[in-house]
Computed example of a mutant assay.
Amino acid sequence: MPSVLLVPGRGIARSEHWQERWSRELPDCRWVPRPGRYFDIVTRVAALHQAIAAEPEPPVLVAHSGGCVTVAQWAAEHRLPVHAALLVAPPYLDPGWTPGPDDPPEERFPAVVHTGRLPFRTVVVASRTDPWATYEQSVSYASGWGAVLVDAGDAGHINTAAGYGPWPVGVRLLADLLR
């Protein structure tokens, strides 16, 4: 059975977050190292590449928020085998966005989120009330990535603040991808 690599988002997940729970409770489920305090797409993609290369079999990638952007960027740059990916609540990054004066200069996001077809089976879980992406933006990502879209309904950012510690639906989606 493939291992599961958890791809971190921008912030540090609380211990109650579903990804944190999975890292403790599910077998063969571990974090891709989070290099540094700030989100830097170059170091995040390098860490993901190193983690995938170290796996004896193609892994399942499970990303939340900014981790979805990391997975998409990795897929645009690398060609190691991946069994499947579960991308949860991808944030929309406006191509015209520029950092504001209060944004840390150490943070670097891709100029444009890769929206080409991903070369592995992918499921995108999108909320209709995500503060970081409209449902239509998530639909567009899923379509470009060639992913199956799961409508999570009124689920906020599918994180601890939105009530997602235990997430049985997510566990079932992961089980389907592990097959």
Results as ranks from 00 to 15, higher is better:
W31E: 10
P35N: 03
Y38M: 03
Y38D: 07
Y38F: 08
F39E: 02
F39N: 01
D40V: 11
D40Q: 11
I41N: 06
I41R: 01
I41F: 02
V42L: 06
T43E: 06
T43S: 11
R44P: 11
V45F: 11
V45Y: 09
A46E: 12
A46K: 06
A47T: 10
L48R: 06
A51L: 05
I52W: 07
P56F: 12
P58E: 01
P59W: 08
P59L: 12
P59M: 10
V60W: 02
L61M: 11
V62E: 08
A63W: 02
H64N: 09
G66L: 07
G67N: 08
T70N: 03
T70L: 08
T70Y: 07
Q73S: 02
W74F: 09
W74H: 08
W74E: 07
A75L: 02
E77W: 12
E77S: 15
R79F: 04
L80Y: 12
L80H: 13
P81N: 04
V82S: 04
A84S: 13
A85C: 03
L87W: 09
V88L: 03
V88E: 02
A89V: 05
P90F: 04
P91W: 13
Y92I: 00
L93R: 14
L93N: 08
L93I: 13
P95L: 09
P95T: 08
G96W: 10
D102E: 14
D103N: 13
P105F: 09
E106N: 00
E107F: 13
R108Y: 05
F109K: 13
A111Y: 08
A111E: 15
V112L: 14
V112E: 10
V113E: 14
V113H: 05
T115E: 12
G116V: 07
L118Y: 11
L118K: 05
P119M: 03
R121H: 10
T122F: 15
T122W: 11
T122V: 11
V123A: 11
V124Y: 05
V124E: 04
V125W: 07
A126P: 02
A126V: 05
A126M: 06
A126R: 06
S127Y: 14
R128W: 01
R128L: 09
P131G: 09
P131C: 11
W132K: 15
W132I: 13
T134G: 15
T134L: 15
T134D: 15
E136Y: 00
Q137N: 05
Q137E: 15
S138G: 14
S140A: 15
S140I: 07
Y141W: 07
Y141H: 15
S143Q: 14
S143V: 14
S143L: 14
G144D: 03
A147P: 04
V148G: 01
V148R: 14
V150P: 01
D151I: 03
A152W: 07
G153F: 14
N159T: 15
T160K: 02
A161T: 08
G163V: 08
G163H: 09
Y164Q: 03
Y164I: 00
G165P: 00
G165H: 10
